[in-house]
Amino acid sequence: MILLDLMLPQESGQEVCQYIRQTTDAPIIMVTALADIQDKIAGLNLGADDYISKPFDLAELEARVRAVLRRGKQSRQPSSLPDEYVFGPWKFVPAKRALYRAPGIRLTLSGAETDLLLVFWQHQQTLLTRSEIIGLIHGNPNALEERTIDLLVSRLRRKLAEGGRQLELIRTVRGDGYIFDPRACTP
């Protein structure tokens, strides 16, 4: 999410917005003193997802940020994806942020863990670098520190462990990244 003021000291906010749109799909809210309807139309036509004029109430800005993020999340998830994914004894339901272990044991996943498992599922048996994973989750490979992915993978591995032992569902390729292989839990 990018909050962009149009009246920047050294560059035009419009030029910055065009550059951002060429390099990322990150949501943009223009926050500016330019309140004329023509300015709003121009900003939205440049690729902004929303436009708010100064002065504004912080509660309104917060609500607009939540709304834009909600819309962005809905548009990033193609409707052709199944509601659940089954591998070995596991059933993964992204909409509920849940991982079910037969018989009926539910593990709650954080939003980041859900996004990571969904990316792994969509790219199974494919080597993904940390920056590729970040890019697939956030639309920008520089949105997070790469070590954040290591921490998420570690947490996900713990949740996917069977009887205290970790399966080879998520394999580390030293120096390169990770490979998700759901076949690892089939006998």
Rank of each mutant, 00 (worst) to 15 (best):
R101W: 14
D57H: 09
I170Q: 03
D150T: 13
E145G: 15
G135M: 01
A95W: 11
A95N: 10
T108G: 14
T186Q: 11
C17L: 12
P89A: 06
T24K: 03
Q22N: 14
W121G: 08
T186M: 10
Q77L: 15
Y51D: 03
R158Y: 09
A35I: 15
L44G: 14
L46F: 04
G72Q: 11
S154N: 11
N142K: 07
R71H: 09
E11N: 11
D176I: 13
P182Q: 08
R158G: 10
M1C: 00
R183H: 14
K73Q: 15
P94Q: 08
E15M: 05
T148A: 11
P94G: 05
T129K: 12
L81S: 07
W121Q: 13
S75F: 04
I134L: 08
A98E: 12
P103Y: 01
R147P: 03
A26F: 12
E162W: 10
P89S: 03
R106G: 06
R171W: 07
V153M: 00
G177F: 02
P55C: 06
L156Y: 07
P141C: 04
Q22H: 14
L44H: 15
L152Q: 15
L128A: 01
Y19E: 12
Q22A: 07
A184Y: 10
R97P: 10
R165L: 09
A59F: 13
P89L: 05
G43K: 04
P82S: 04
Q10F: 11
G88T: 00
A143Y: 02
R171M: 04
D36P: 05
V153P: 08
Q74D: 13
L69A: 10
C17R: 03
R21T: 01
S110A: 12
N45D: 11
I29D: 03
R158W: 13
N140V: 07
P55W: 08
L69C: 15
V119F: 01
L44T: 07
T108F: 11
I149D: 06
E132K: 05
I28H: 02
A102T: 15
P94I: 02
A102S: 14
L107S: 15
D49Q: 02
L167A: 12
S53L: 07
R64S: 04
I134G: 06
L109Q: 00
M7F: 14
L34V: 05
D181W: 00
S154L: 03
L4N: 04
P94S: 01
A48N: 08
F120P: 04
K40E: 14
A33L: 12
D83M: 06
D115G: 02
L61P: 06
R157M: 03
A33K: 05
G43T: 04
L3E: 01
L107V: 15
I149Y: 03
L152S: 11
P78G: 12
L81I: 05
Q74A: 12
S12W: 09
G47E: 07
R66P: 02
G111K: 13
E162F: 12
F92M: 01
N142V: 02
F56K: 05
K159S: 03
A63N: 07
F56T: 06
P182V: 06
L160T: 05
A102V: 15
P9C: 06
